[in-house]
């Protein structure tokens, strides 16, 4: 089943908008420990009811604003379903509640951070704002959470349970988490490199309206997606995936990779790259860093590239293909042994 992407939005370290015409150079926050942080909209009040904003943490603002901007972009008032993916949910709230229960020895705890730490807070807040009674779900944690949200949407549409689905992902970075991530040694590669690296903590939100109905204003068409659960035979699995959608690897115009830096040969994508000698090789982590739902940013970027027919210079690793920009394959290794594949067409 093919899905049409009707509307998109992303709030990320490169800004908060729905197109990439003027992509700014990303600025890292450097307070001893480097990380990527979102450039947030100047005013949330224009998009979120001020009465509701007062309790919202940053993740909620980013996620909800992105979802509402996305609906606006798609000119859709009411989706049939809302599905989200998030690595750590509203982690600022869980952190706050944990610290407070320890510091106050379990006494006199404010309930708001506990309520908002629930992982489906954002999908249900959006439903609450829209009064959307349709199917609602949230996938969380490491592994294929945004990817399952997409797969869920695809099934809802192919089962005729929904025709317009709002799907998105969000993750925020907080100071305590940055400290923990560095202590866990997840970003040790960064220090070894002098050139820019995506191997740094990142964050962001991205939302999409998916539909089974084609129209002229669509951003792109999602031809297929798959979550592969095996480190072995990744390139064979990709070939099989492309076969399923009757496209040869030499006809893939651009491959958007989840690599940490431009040193492809030393990356764990090296065997994948051999499949695509004639394709442009691109990377997205230099714009958003790494987080559990960074696939959503990659999808936003690829969708935008197809719509605008422009590839931002700073994400090109190898320019091998000058043919019409009519398709993009996203290959992103997520957690454990899982790899996400998305095939998009103009």
């Amino acid at each position: 089943m093919e899905l049409y992407i009707k509307g998109i939005n992303s709030i990320s370290p490169v800004g908060s908008f729905d197109n990439i015409d003027n992509l700014p150079e990303v600025k890292l926050t450097d307070e001893g420990l480097k990380y990527y942080s979102c450039i947030e909209p100047a005013v949330y009040k224009e998009i979120i009811n001020p009465v509701l904003i007062r309790r919202m943490s940053r993740a909620m603002k980013i996620g909800i604003a992105s979802a509402l901007f996305c609906l606006k972009d798609a000119k859709l008032e009411m989706p049939d379903s809302i599905i989200t993916g998030t690595g750590l949910g509203c982690v600022e709230d869980s952190d706050k509640f944990l610290v407070s229960l320890i510091e106050n020895e379990e006494k006199m705890l404010n309930p708001t951070p506990f309520i908002q730490s629930t992982h489906n807070t954002i999908s249900s807040q959006i439903a609450l704002m829209l009064k959307c009674h349709g199917y609602n779900s949230t996938y969380a944690g490491r592994g294929a959470c945004f990817e399952t949200a997409m797969l869920d949407a695809l099934m809802l549409i192919s089962d005729n349970e929904a025709s317009n689905v709002l799907v998105g992902a969000y993750d925020e970075l907080i100071q305590n988490q940055i400290k923990i991530l560095y202590r866990l040694g997840q970003f040790r590669n960064y220090k070894k490199l002098n050139n820019i690296s995506g191997n740094l903590p990142g964050e962001g939100a991205a939302f999409f309206v998916l539909s089974d109905k084609q129209s002229e204003t669509d951003y792109a068409k999602l031809v297929g997606m798959e979550i592969i659960s095996s480190d072995n035979y990744l390139s064979e699995n990709i070939s099989e995936f492309l076969n399923k959608y009757s496209i040869e690897s030499k006809n893939i115009n651009s491959v958007l990779l989840g690599v940490e830096n431009t040193n492809l040969e030393n990356s764990n994508y090296s065997d994948v790259i051999n499949l695509f000698p004639f394709s442009n090789l691109l990377w997205f982590k230099r714009l958003c860093g790494e987080y559990m739902t960074d696939s959503a940013f990659a999808l936003w970027l690829a969708t935008n590239i197809l719509k605008s027919q422009k590839i931002p210079e700073n994400i090109i690793i190898r320019k091998n293909n000058t043919n019409a920009l009519d398709n993009i394959l996203i290959v992103n290794k997520i957690s454990g042994n899982q790899t996400a594949l998305f095939l998009l067409k103009k």
Binding site: V51, R55, M108, L109, P111, T112, I115
Partner: peptide
């Protein structure tokens, strides 16, 4: 003021604290 039940719980904490 348009407050809701979550605000009520917060105010209970406020009075105690």
């Amino acid at each position: 003021l348009g407050l809701d039940s979550i605000d009520a719980l917060e105010l209970i904490v406020l009075v105690e604290k």
